[in-house]
Design a protein around this nucleic acid. Structure first.
Length: 980
RNA sequence: GCCCCCGUAGCCCAACUGGCAGAGGCAGCCCACUUAAAAUGGGCACAGUGCGGGUUCGAGUCCCGUCGGGGGUACCA
């Protein structure tokens, strides 16, 4: 059987041999090394430095150990193709790959397999490296690193200390020169406190102001924690007993479970490290406009940050505390201050601290029985309601979202615009964590308030005129003129929403009753984890309990090897359990004597035993790729400016006047990181920018989310998945949809993810073995646009194999291995086809439309196949064009065609513009938009002649049939449309 | 509920600022090579763009509505 296959045919076996050979050569010759302008690898004389540059990056993977399937390398192949193409256009290209190797997945895998995470992680990375190499990735090997390398996390820790030793000064001029707000070293704040330039706002028991020098070290540390960008906080955090660690808000799903592992998450008050990302909320929102990112991702970030502009308004409530007979201010946040005249009651969150002071001893005279929940007095009612609310889980609370519950506090507040007494309720549809934890309820213009008003029999006043036909029984949240909105001093009646807001805010400000306010949904980033496998904090605690960062020369603080690295985990539902950091057990490591160089000499300290979340390492790896060997800085400033500094032109689609923020030229990865990694990384980058370490304001100038490769799942009659590879397709004899069988039994087909349990996993290794890496690359790239989700179909891979086989046959005789190309000149048709292809493929590669580039190359190759012998003059440029997608076979053919060096830097073919113009074109003649005739005309035909020719066409005449011509549209030279 | 994206041959996908619906591939059918085959070569056929309106000389493309699929988010005041 096999002896019948021609000896020199491009088979999988030959492909594998060629691929291994070229991979070795690329590695031996450092083919993909890029040039640096400065830093330890400075090569300022490299001619490529002056020719433009491009930094192309993938989201680096976790070396997870669960194995790769064919979907994983999709983005990697796409960036590799683009990077290889960019090199052939003369650019200095930086493209490498590293590993995000700290964190839960690596640790969990290690725990499962009973081995130390470092052992399993390093082994998995080796497997990953081998797989990527086998796929022919042109990564620059010397720049590769993993986040677990001490030489890398030394700088992760260094950045942490920079953040810890900084505060956000909202009044300082921005580093960009426009506006205000930037991070500054905390010592500058200390100096301000010490000199009295900034008021401490602290008083002793007698009410005298206290000075900085009066404060104890612990008190000073407390004050600074209120400013530091990395600080300690004991606030309610997300405690996940099932994982044994706390989690950030971003890591908790909407239904209150951990994103990883899907365990329940509880709110616990714990002292934890936080990152003050909220200080950057405005810039993180605003600068999205300057990025070339998918709108979807920008939208997700905007929603996550959740900036909303409104007003804080003061309502006054009589105090119920004994011995205190004034009023208490109760502040509400509202985005609709224009509707104040429609506020008919107030609602506070069950956790609201003012409740204790406003709830009176007895129900006011004539209290509606629906409001009391049958309680004898307000205190009983409110306490009962608070208890009920506190025991409700997030899930239950959400499930109950439709029905509003609440209870009257017994207190009435004064509506500041008209002095009306409005009842104050407590209800769990108001959240303590947002705004001020209290709202003014405007049922007329808010559906939630409407629902509550209906349930409790509260008055409803419309203060915006609803549009015609708006249902009578619903709140009107739309745009319209204000009505019923006037007092003796101000009237909003007739104004639109925006104007009404403006006027009422001005009035509130004037009366000292409120001010414009911006609130955010974004919360500070919880930054500590009770896990072993992460970066240790470069922090020690002194005997007073004050935290200090360790000096730079003591970095890295290495993760100690401990016998027991697994975290203490609990029953997932055990809400009362407490986190316990594995490092706390390493007492020899924890208890240290150090001289921190602060003049206090050698002292005893305890090390911080929490570790950083796995997002830390990925926050800045783009910077380290630029200068990975630099031991003096995280990146040399010249190198940073060269690769990712701001460019003269803003990104495509940026608003007028926007400037380029700098950043990686192309970043490709999954959309699942839209708010986690990408938000954190932007935040760190901005801090580094403010502190002057980088010239770019953003890490990633352009982002593309690659789609996922999904697969069909086949299930038998019992609903169990059967091996997808063994399923046979049965065509429908009627020509309808095909059916499927497995071992003769009918099975059903559905579409979904690839997974072991679904028995539909296909691995890149299998594909390399059966077809070769080049075929696999061509197939993945030809399946459709990069962003698209698409189903894997192993049967279809052969099409890509055939393409490469035909290309091979156009150069090499399958029987003898001799060259078959002819040195005769090309015929005109071939030449034009070639140049059309060059122009098209170049544009497609540039725009990452690799699928259409491949189609064009197949088309040209098919044309060459039909010739008696393929001309060298056409084959060579075709081989060069194929090289980015199928680099091994292209290199092999290039060398067989007699060329010495690698194709990697060979210039991409140039299209001759003269050969792109056709002498004649086919002109379409339409009558009333329908094609009736085609004419061969000169490409430069003028409109009048073309119109004449079209009208003279016998086919057109027959259709018109003497009817009067009303109008003729001529789009020379391609189209004439005749309207009768 | 709200927001976003996508619906083109049996399947994956092309189609520039509106201008001939088809570039490419898979599967199908026919022929050739072959004892037989296919990861061989050649050829053929296959949809009027989810559905309903509108704008236009002309709509896959723009607008409105609707259905289906996917994603995000969810009492955020």
């Amino acid at each position: 059987m096999s002896e019948r296959i021609p000896e020199h045919r491009y088979t999988a076996a030959l492909a594998n041999e060629i691929e291994a050979r070229w991979q070795e050569r690329w590695e031996a010759e450092d083919t993909f090394a890029s040039a640096n302008p400065a830093g330890p690898w400075a090569d300022p004389d490299d001619p490529r430095l002056g020719q433009g540059h491009r930094f192309i990056m993938d989201m680096f993977p976790y070396p997870s150990g669960t194995g790769l399937h064919v979907g994983h390398p999709l983005g990697f192949i796409a960036t590799d193709v683009h990077a290889r193409f960019a090199r052939t256009t003369g650019m200095n290209v930086l493209h490498t790959m590293g590993f995000d190797a700290f964190g839960l997945p690596a640790e969990q895998y290690a725990v499962q397999t009973g081995q130390h995470p470092r052992v399993t992680t390093e082994r998995n990375m080796e497997i990953y490296r081998a797989q990527l190499r086998r796929l022919g990735m042109g990564h620059e090997q010397r720049r590769s690193f993993a986040t677990i390398d001490p030489g890398y996390y030394r700088w992760t820790q260094w950045i942490f200390t920079q953040i810890f030793e900084s505060w956000y000064d909202v009044d300082a001029p921005a580093r960009t020169g426009e506006g205000t707000g930037r991070a500054r070293p905390i010592r500058e704040l200390v100096a301000q406190f010490a000199s009295g330039e900034r008021d401490l706002d602290l008083h002793d028991d007698e009410g005298r102001p206290r000075t900085w020098a009066d404060l104890s070290p612990v008190e000073q540390a407390d004050v600074l924690d209120g400013y530091r960008l990395a600080y300690l906080s004991s606030a309610p955090v997300n405690w996940c007993p099932g994982l044994g660690t706390v989690l950030s808000n971003e890591e908790v799903t909407a239904d209150g479970r951990s994103e990883r592992g899907n365990f329940p998450v509880f709110k616990r008050n714990l002292s934890q490290w936080m990152m003050r990302i909220t200080a950057y909320a405005d810039r993180l929102t605003d600068d999205l406009d300057r990025l070339d990112w998918p709108e979807k991702v920008k939208l997700m970030q905007r929603n996550w940050i959740g900036r909303s502009v409104g007003a804080t308004v003061r309502f006054d409530v009589p105090s119920a505390s004994s011995g205190h007979d004034g009023t208490l201010p109760l502040h509400v946040f509202t985005t609709r201050p224009d509707t104040l005249f429609g506020a008919t009651f107030m609602v506070v969150a069950p956790e609201h601290p003012s409740l204790a002071e406003i709830v009176p001893d007895a129900w006011p005279e004539g209290t509606d029985p629906r409001w009391t929940d049958g309680a004898p007095d307000p205190r009983t009612a409110v306490t009962a309601y608070q208890r009920m609310a506190s025991t409700k889980s997030d899930v239950e609370r959400q499930a109950d979202a439709k029905t509003k519950t609440g209870v009257f506090t017994g207190a009435f507040a004064t509506n500041p615009v008209d002095g009306r007494q409005v009842p104050v309720f407590v209800a769990d549809y108001v959240l303590m964590g947002y705004g001020t934890g209290a709202i003014m309820a405007v049922p007329g213009q808010d559906q939630r308030d409407w629902d509550f008003a209906v349930a409790y029999g509260l008055p409803i006043i419309r203060t915006v005129q609803p549009t015609e036909g708006h249902p009578e029984d619903q709140a009107f949240t739309g745009e319209g003129p204000a009505v019923n909105s006037a007092n003796d001093e101000v009237s909003l009646d007739g104004l639109g929403v925006a104007e009404a807001k403006e006027r009422i805010i001005a009035w509130l400000v004037e009366r000292g009753l409120g001010r414009e306010t911006v609130t955010y949904r974004l919360r500070d980033w919880l930054f500590s984890r009770q896990r072993y496998w992460g970066e240790p904090f470069p922090v020690v605690w002194d005997e007073d309990g004050v935290a200090h960062t360790v000096p730079d020369e003591m970095l890295p603080v290495e993760l100690p090897d401990v016998p027991d690295y697994s975290p203490r985990t609990y029953e997932p539902e055990d809400a009362d359990s407490s986190p316990e950091a594995p490092l706390a057990r390493a007492t020899d490591w924890v208890e240290v004597e150090l001289d921190l160089g602060d003049g206090r000499g050698v002292r005893r300290y305890r090390r911080e035993t929490n570790t950083m979340p796995n997002w830390a390492g990925s926050c800045w790896y783009h910077l380290r790729y630029l200068d990975p060997a630099n031991e003096d800085a995280l990146v040399d400033p010249t190198v940073e400016r060269y690769w990712i500094g701001p460019r003269p032109a803003p990104v495509a689609g940026a608003p007028a006047g926007a400037t380029d923020p700098g950043g990686v030229d192309l970043y490709v990865g999954g959309v699942e990181h839209a708010v986690l990694h990408l938000l954190y990384s932007r935040f760190w980058h901005k801090v580094l920018f403010d502190l002057g370490y980088v010239s770019s304001e953003e890490p990633f100038r352009r982002l593309i989310n690659q789609g996922m490769i999904e697969a069909y799942v086949y299930r038998d009659a019992r609903g169990f998945p059967v091996p997808a590879a063994e399923v046979e397709e049965v065509p429908d004899p009627e020509g309808g949809a095909p059916t499927f069988t497995w071992q003769g039994e009918p099975v059903t087909q559905e579409y979904g993810k690839m997974g072991k349990s679904l028995k539909n996993v296909v691995t890149p290794d299998e594909m390399c073995e059966q077809y070769g890496a080049d075929t696999f690359r061509v197939y993945e790239m030809s399946m459709g646009p990069l962003e698209q989700y698409r189903p894997w179909e192993t049967r279809a891979v052969v099409g890509s194999m055939r393409f490469l086989q035909r290309l091979w046959r156009n150069v090499v005789d399958e029987e003898t291995g001799e060259l078959t190309v002819t040195d005769d000149p090309m015929d005109v048709e071939t030449e034009k086809a070639l140049h059309r292809t060059i122009a098209g493929v170049r544009a497609d590669y540039e725009a990452l439309r690799t699928n259409t580039a491949i189609a064009k190359m197949i088309e040209l190759n098919n044309h060459l196949t039909k010739l008696p012998a393929a001309p060298r003059a056409a084959v060579e440029p075709l081989v060069q064009m194929v090289a980015p997608v199928a680099p091994h076979v292209a290199e092999e053919l290039w060398s067989r065609l007699g060329h010495e060096g690698s194709l990697a830097w060979a210039p991409f073919p140039e299209a001759d513009p003269q050969l792109l113009v056709e002498d004649t074109v086919t002109c379409v003649v339409q009558v009333r938009g329908k094609v009736r005739d085609r004419l061969e005309v000169a490409a430069d035909v003028d409109e009048a002649t073309l119109q004449e020719l079209a009208l003279a066409s016998p086919k057109v005449q027959a259709i018109i049939d003497g009817a009067p011509v009303r109008k003729v549209i001529v789009r020379a030279p391609g189209l004439v449309n005749i309207v009768v």
